[in-house]
């Protein structure tokens, strides 16, 4: 091993890393899709009139947010087989990362819903909208634009957390870099390239999220 950068080695491993990047993006996308939907469920569950449910969900969200994702990934992957449920690395990874981020997104939604003025709820009552229509046609559409910045942060966040999936053998970018490093006894190029690929994706994404937020606000006439 030496610290001199080898370009031929770089070109040799780059296609393999880029292929693994596709898996990373799929993992981030699938995990995020779970989190977006489940987060809304967790947020709305905290607004039901039934107080015990609110308390339980609140504590569950706190629990998920205060414990390490990598530990949750291990937990989901290993605990299933103990009770006869065998989950593939991909399935357990998506469950763990989706659940983890749904707790964060539920907080984003909650803040967004709380920010909708009280007068909007009252106007809904005054025209006699049902609770469901009040949420889905009036409150949530207004809670969304101010939530986009937070949602975007967590999209980038989930992407940056996907390397943790390598610990249970999901064949994403970090997993590929580890494998290349172990096969060739060279870590400089694979790990540096992984860092550069992450930078090349997460920096523009953060900018795109800002553009998207402005577009949604204009689109909704706000």
């Amino acid at each position: 091993m030496s610290f001199d950068w080898k370009w031929d080695f770089t070109w040799e491993i780059l296609p393999r890393l880029l292929a693994a990047t596709v898996n990373t993006l799929i993992a981030a996308g699938a995990g995020y899709a779970i989190a977006v939907v489940l987060g809304l469920v967790l947020a709305l569950a905290q607004r039901t009139p039934w107080k015990p449910l609110t308390l339980i969900v609140r504590e569950f969200v706190e629990f998920i947010r205060s414990t390490p994702l990598v530990l949750q990934i291990f937990f989901v992957f290993y605990v299933g087989p103990q009770f006869g449920i065998r989950l593939s690395p991909w399935t357990s990874g998506m469950i763990a990362i989706g659940l983890h981020y749904s707790a964060y997104l539920s907080e984003v939604y909650r803040a967004g819903i709380d920010a909708v003025p009280r007068g909007q709820w009252e106007a809904c009552r005054a025209i006699n909208l049902s609770t469901r229509d009040t949420y889905f046609r009036v409150i949530i559409p207004q809670a969304l634009p101010p939530s986009i910045a937070g949602m975007g942060n967590y999209l980038v966040g989930i992407f940056k957390d996907t390397p943790m999936l390598s610990v249970i053998g999901v064949a994403e970018l970090m997993h590929a870099a580890n494998a290349i490093g172990a096969e060739n006894y060279r870590f400089l190029e694979p790990y540096t390239l992984v860092g550069l690929i992450f930078l090349a994706i997460s920096l523009p994404t953060a900018g795109l999220v800002r553009l998207f937020e402005g577009w949604v606000r204009r689109k909704m006439g706000m």
Partner: peptide
């Protein structure tokens, strides 16, 4: 700020542990 926020903690950890030794 941009380098450490733009990449993953795990990548940074591996880089510091496995790659920094190559720089002595």
């Amino acid at each position: 700020i941009e380098i450490f926020r733009g990449t993953s903690l795990l990548v940074q950890l591996y880089w510091i542990f496995f790659v920094l030794p190559l720089f002595g």
